[in-house]
Computed example of a mutant assay.
Amino acid sequence: MLHRRRFLTHATRGLALGGAALLVAQGALAQPSYTVPLAQLQAMVDPKFPRNVPVQGLFNLSVQAPHLRLLPEVNRLGAAMALDVAGPALRRSHQGRLDVEFALRYEASDRTLRAHQIQLGRMEFPSLRPEVTDLLNAYGPLLAEQSLREVTLHQLRPQDTAVFDGLGLQPGPITVTAKGLTVAFVSKAP
Rank of each mutant, 00 (worst) to 15 (best):
1 M>G: 14
2 L>K: 15
4 R>E: 13
6 R>N: 15
8 L>C: 11
11 A>K: 03
11 A>G: 09
13 R>A: 15
14 G>C: 15
17 L>Y: 13
19 G>I: 08
26 Q>C: 14
27 G>E: 15
28 A>L: 15
29 L>Y: 07
30 A>H: 11
31 Q>M: 15
34 Y>N: 01
36 V>W: 00
37 P>E: 02
38 L>E: 01
38 L>Y: 03
39 A>Q: 03
40 Q>V: 10
43 A>K: 08
46 D>S: 10
47 P>I: 07
47 P>Y: 08
50 P>W: 02
51 R>V: 04
54 P>N: 10
56 Q>A: 06
57 G>Y: 09
57 G>T: 11
58 L>E: 10
59 F>V: 06
60 N>S: 12
61 L>V: 14
63 V>Q: 00
63 V>I: 11
64 Q>M: 12
64 Q>E: 13
67 H>V: 14
67 H>Y: 12
70 L>P: 03
70 L>F: 02
71 L>A: 03
74 V>N: 09
82 A>N: 12
83 L>T: 06
84 D>T: 15
85 V>A: 13
88 P>R: 01
89 A>P: 04
91 R>D: 06
93 S>Y: 00
95 Q>D: 11
97 R>N: 11
99 D>E: 15
100 V>T: 07
100 V>C: 14
105 R>D: 11
108 A>Q: 12
108 A>W: 09
109 S>E: 11
112 T>W: 03
115 A>E: 06
115 A>Q: 07
117 Q>C: 09
121 G>R: 05
122 R>Y: 15
123 M>P: 00
123 M>N: 01
124 E>S: 14
124 E>P: 02
131 E>S: 14
132 V>H: 05
133 T>P: 02
136 L>D: 01
137 N>F: 03
138 A>M: 14
138 A>T: 12
141 P>F: 03
142 L>M: 09
142 L>F: 12
144 A>E: 01
144 A>S: 06
145 E>W: 08
148 L>Q: 08
148 L>I: 12
149 R>I: 03
150 E>I: 03
152 T>A: 12
154 H>E: 06
157 R>V: 09
158 P>L: 08
159 Q>F: 10
162 A>P: 01
167 L>C: 08
168 G>H: 07
168 G>V: 07
169 L>M: 08
171 P>I: 00
172 G>H: 09
173 P>R: 15
175 T>W: 01
178 A>R: 07
179 K>R: 12
180 G>Y: 13
180 G>D: 09
180 G>C: 09
182 T>K: 07
186 V>D: 01
186 V>Q: 08
187 S>C: 10
189 A>M: 13
